[in-house]
Design a protein around this nucleic acid. Sequence first.
DNA 1: GTGAAAGCGCTAACAC
DNA 2: GTGTTAGCGCTTTCAC
Lengths: 326, 326
Amino acid sequence: MTRPAKRITSSDVARAAGVSRATVSFVLNDRPGLSITQETRRRVLEAAQRLDYRPHASARSLAAGRSDVVLLSIPDLPIGAGISRFVEELATALAAYGLTLVTHLAGAHGRPLPDVCASVDASAVIGFDPFDHDTIQALYRAGARVVIPAGADMPASTGHIGRAQADHLIGRGHRRLGYAAPGHAGFREMARERLRGVTDACAEAGIDPPVVLTTTLEIASAAQAVSHWAERSVTGVCTFNDETAIAVLAGLHHHGLSAPADLAVIGADDIPTARLTAPPLTTVCYDLHQAGRQRAEAVVAGLSGHQLDVVALTPAVPQVVQRSST
Amino acid sequence: MTRPAKRITSSDVARAAGVSRATVSFVLNDRPGLSITQETRRRVLEAAQRLDYRPHASARSLAAGRSDVVLLSIPDLPIGAGISRFVEELATALAAYGLTLVTHLAGAHGRPLPDVCASVDASAVIGFDPFDHDTIQALYRAGARVVIPAGADMPASTGHIGRAQADHLIGRGHRRLGYAAPGHAGFREMARERLRGVTDACAEAGIDPPVVLTTTLEIASAAQAVSHWAERSVTGVCTFNDETAIAVLAGLHHHGLSAPADLAVIGADDIPTARLTAPPLTTVCYDLHQAGRQRAEAVVAGLSGHQLDVVALTPAVPQVVQRSST
DNA sequence: GTGAAAGCGCTAACAC
DNA sequence: GTGTTAGCGCTTTCAC
């Protein structure tokens, strides 16, 4: 379970290959502009391989002035497959540039992101959630060179989701909407963004802003919200995410009511169990695949000095998955 | 989005506090055995605070010979509440020792764990899943000082879960059980372990082994499984996890049947939406909280040289949460 | 009690 | 083309 340290250094490789440490560094980093004999290169590579040499990451980044670590911040989300796809795409795209992705799963009591950033000496930090201004500043101070908060291309945390939800409901004739905000504090920021989308859509459609109610993942809480909406003659509700939608559905059942007849409900994220509810949940999904790839490129561009505006990222359009709850 | 680098070094702090860099290092690291004037200490702390000084992680670990980064490997799982709790507990417990946790979300095409370990210069690697022998060796070679694969204390990936499920059903009089295996390939290993638990329990109770059927998260798939079980006169089924259980519940509804009257179903993991199904899902939960804490201590012990056998970890007992589906 | 100095393993000018 | 050398920012032994 534990093992004594005994590192193989670049000197070992240099010695084994009969060259200097600088040469080893050059061939291993594929330094452009330098021409190294095929023979020398081969010898170095062979020696490194044989010795199972791994450059010491800390020494490397200390000397180079930047690490090849990219940190992804994931809020305390239950989104399964969607996030996985994103992470996977991001990780592979970054790997192609020699960058390594690690993630920080935010918890209620976890240490602050900037601390983590500093501890791993990350050169870039990507947010699955939008960062507030202070966090961004703190990240830069913590040593990050590039910080990419969830942006316009990442519908998961923007108003696009809410917009799509509201537009769907409005398109089906609903004039009085409700919004089910999550009880979990970690979602606050993301929920604000999503809610903003539905509020905007309502304004544009010329109807009242949504009746916002907080709903925890418990039947009692959801049932109460359902009553409230009924009193305010709300006919359709957008929920923060699918889990919240499932709670609302349960709240409906609790009153002997059901969707969409008594209340239309539309979720967000298209989690795997969304299609298993009664009735199957209408929701909105989005392609995180592309967002992952774009972020990787933005990071690389930012790291190499080519300023790349986050606004340049192509927004991905969320799609409504029409099932039977609306 | 990008920012020029301008680090504050320990020299800056030393200058500001009117002491030497060594002194700064001593007070900031609370070096035991050294007695430093209260006044000096205060001045250093104040200066560090005022300058928002952050020790450079890479330089620190290069000099100290070890980083304070701990890497957690998470297989391609839906990141549910269970894992979050574990991660959170682990992260806070480690933080108390000055260690920082980052996680590696394994994807089908992600880079190998040892590479990531080397890139972040992690001193310890913890697995949410069991590591195979080669991986463990590779991790040590990649610079890890402590490697802790998922063990007996971590019920999430052991037979304890399945055992608890089966015992519950058997205890309620069921003599013919079914098992709903997950469709997702990433769960294969974990599912095998869990299934083993129910098989063992059946053997001990002297009843037939469970009728194992694979169920994807789609109504059609689950409905088909339900028919099969009915044909084989199965009266109770243990599912790989709660999501699969939800699918089975949906399959039941599809046939106009319901739990527990027509088929008792018990899930696993106690995800948030488990209490929102109709009927609320009986499931088994386990305390990952404790597992997190234990791992943190094992890491610290390992790092400080006190060999601590992984077998010494106290197994956590999974608990059945009785709701109405059984 | 505090400071001076020697590296940790690597990269990147610069000289050969 | 390849080797020499000077740090990167920090810890830590050893004098003061």
